[in-house]
Design a protein around this nucleic acid. Structure first.
Ligand SMILES: [Zn+2]
Ligand SMILES: [Zn+2]
Ligand SMILES: [Zn+2]
Ligand SMILES: [Zn+2]
Lengths: 169, 169
DNA sequence: TTATTAATGTTATATTATAACGTATCATTT
DNA sequence: AAATGATACGTTATAATATAACATTAATAA
C-alpha cells in the first residue's frame, strides 16, 4: 500500500512536497518530450500549495493573481488537461476539483480519502483493493479500464476535533 | 456480493425491473410518510427505462414530453433530490448523471461498473471490498462516512463485440 | 529565413445546478 | 365545509463548471 495520508494529515515540510512534485513533473516532461510551460507549471504549483483539491475557477483566480494578468477559463482547462494527460494530477469528480498526484509513475488506484470537514484529500494506492476490484470485474465479465474511488469522511485531525467536541457535550 | 450485473447486461424482462422499483419506492414512501407524487414517480420511472444513467437535462426533456407540459430545471432537481434522499437513486459524479438503485434497502457500497461503450451501469454491493475499504480507512485514522466507487470499462456485451472486431483485423 | 507545429489569447456559448419567491395542492384541525 | 399550516410545484433569474471556434503568438525544425 502506497499513500500520502500521513503527509497530508500531519504537519510537515510542505515545501518538499511542492519541489518534489515539480521535479517529477519536469522529468516526466523531458522524458515524454513535451513542454512544461509557465502556465502549466503555475497550475501544478497551485495545486500543490495545499493538500486540498481546487476547482478550475479557483485556479483561474489564483493563476491570474500569480501571473498578474487576466486568465480566461480555456487557459486553465488546457493546463489541467495537459497535467491530467501526463498523470500529474487527478480530477475528483464529486468535487469538480483537481489535485496533484503524489506518485504519478507507479500503478495506482485513484483512491481518495476526502475530508468533508477540512477538504483535504489523501491518495491511497492499495494493491489488495485493486486486485479485488479486478477480480470482481472479471467475475462480472467486465473489462476494467480505469477507476475512480472516493471515500468521504473525517481525516485524522478532524476526527479528533470531532471527538473533543462530542465529549464536551 | 449483491449485484444487478446480469440483469443489466443481458436481455431480460425489463418491465419487471421497472415495476419492482416502483413498488419498492411506494412502499418506502408510505413507510417514511412522504409523498410519491406524479413528478417524482415519473422521474423514477424514466431512470428505470434503461440501465443507463441519465443527466438532469435529459430527464427534463423526457419528463416534459411524458407529462406534456414544459418542465423547468428546479422541478427535475427537486425530484432528483427527493429520490436521492430516500436512497432510491444514485448520482454518478463522473457522468453528472443519475440512475435507479436496484437494492435501496440493503447496506451497500455504491460501486458501479460503467460501460464506456454503451453507457450501461451495473451496481455491485461487495462486502469484502467494503470491509477492505473500512479497514484501510481505519489504518489511516480516517473516519469513513460514505463512498463512491466508479469502475470504467466494457460491459460483457461490448467486450464481446470488441473481441469480434479485434479478430477481424 | 521560412515553414511548421505547439501554445496561448479571446470571445462566445454550452452544460449542470441552485437561489429566490410566488402559487397551488394536500392534509389536518376546527 | 372552511380555515390553517405544511408540502410540493411553477417561474424567473443566475451561479458554477466546461468547451467550441478562431485569432495570435511563441517555439522548433527545415
Ligand atoms: Zn505536503
Ligand atoms: Zn479534515
Ligand atoms: Zn432491467
Ligand atoms: Zn456496454
Amino acid at each position: 500500500m502506497l499513500t500520502n495520508s500521513r503527509l497530508v494529515h500531519q504537519p510537515h515540510d510542505h515545501g518538499r512536497c511542492i519541489s518534489a512534485a515539480l521535479t517529477r513533473a519536469n522529468d516526466l516532461c523531458s522524458e515524454q518530450k513535451v513542454r512544461m510551460t509557465t502556465t502549466r507549471e503555475s497550475v501544478l504549483r497551485l495545486l500543490w500549495q495545499s493538500h486540498q483539491p481546487l476547482g478550475a475557477y479557483q485556479l483561474q483566480g489564483q493563476l491570474s493573481e500569480l501571473l498578474n494578468k487576466p486568465i480566461a477559463p480555456p487557459t486553465v482547462y488546457r493546463a489541467i488537461d495537459f497535467l491530467l494527460q501526463l498523470g500529474l494530477i487527478h480530477r475528483i469528480p464529486s468535487l469538480n476539483a483537481y489535485i496533484g498526484c503524489p506518485f504519478p509513475n507507479s500503478e495506482h488506484s485513484n483512491l481518495f480519502m476526502i475530508c468533508s470537514q477540512c477538504g483535504s484529500a489523501a491518495e491511497v494506492a492499495h494493491n489488495t483493493i485493486n486486485s479485488m476490484l479486478q477480480s470482481a470485474s472479471d467475475k462480472a465479465n467486465f473489462t476494467l479500464q480505469s477507476q475512480c474511488l472516493e471515500l468521504f469522511g473525517l481525516c485524522p485531525q478532524c476526527s479528533e476535533h470531532r471527538e473533543d467536541t462530542d465529549n464536551e457535550q
